[in-house]
């Protein structure tokens, strides 16, 4: 199928309609279905041009942005939206900033607590050899053998 898409798609010799900024704004949130990861605003594939035309027509009919998006979701499913819906399995991506901050913050907190506890107790359980190695370590690199 990809091979087929690489072939010439004859473009009809009629001018496309004029598109307002609003059209490109909405198209930018929709996936161009035949492309490898381009939005309907970026792609010049015939289907993307037609999608922009549909958006322009629906805007002219007074439909809202949400209604236009729903129109495409009805035909393609949520896949067509570059902004995943905040429900079900894709709710997790929306939570990912909090999740990441929470996980990393928790790790950092536990680490700092441990490090602090260790600073309070004296380092008595360190072997001679380990101390020697650590001391060598603490030299700046230039002065090492």
């Amino acid at each position: 199928m990809l091979l087929a898409l690489a072939l010439a798609q004859p473009s009809p010799n009629t001018p496309p309609p004029d598109f307002s900024p609003e059209v490109f704004k909405i198209a930018g949130q929709l996936r161009c279905p035949v492309c490898q990861g381009e939005s309907a605003a970026e792609s010049n594939a015939g289907i993307a041009v037609e999608m922009r035309r549909i958006i322009a027509e629906q805007l002219a009919q007074g439909r809202s942005e949400a209604e236009i998006r729903a129109f495409f979701v009805e035909r393609y499913g949520d896949w067509i939206l570059y902004e995943p819906p905040a429900r079900g399995l894709t709710l997790w991506v929306w939570l990912s900033p909090l999740l990441g901050l929470g996980l990393l913050g928790f790790g950092l907190w536990r680490y700092l607590a441990r490090v602090r506890a260790r600073a309070l107790t004296t380092a008595s359980d360190v072997s001679e050899e380990e101390i020697a190695r650590l001391e060598a370590e603490l030299q700046s690199p230039e002065r090492q053998p």
Partner: peptide, 16 residues
């Protein structure tokens, strides 16, 4: 997990 296809793209990343 579900066999469904979803997209996570620019509008999402721009917002977060």
């Amino acid at each position: 997990v579900s066999g469904a296809k979803v997209s996570v793209g620019a509008p999402f990343f721009n917002q977060v």
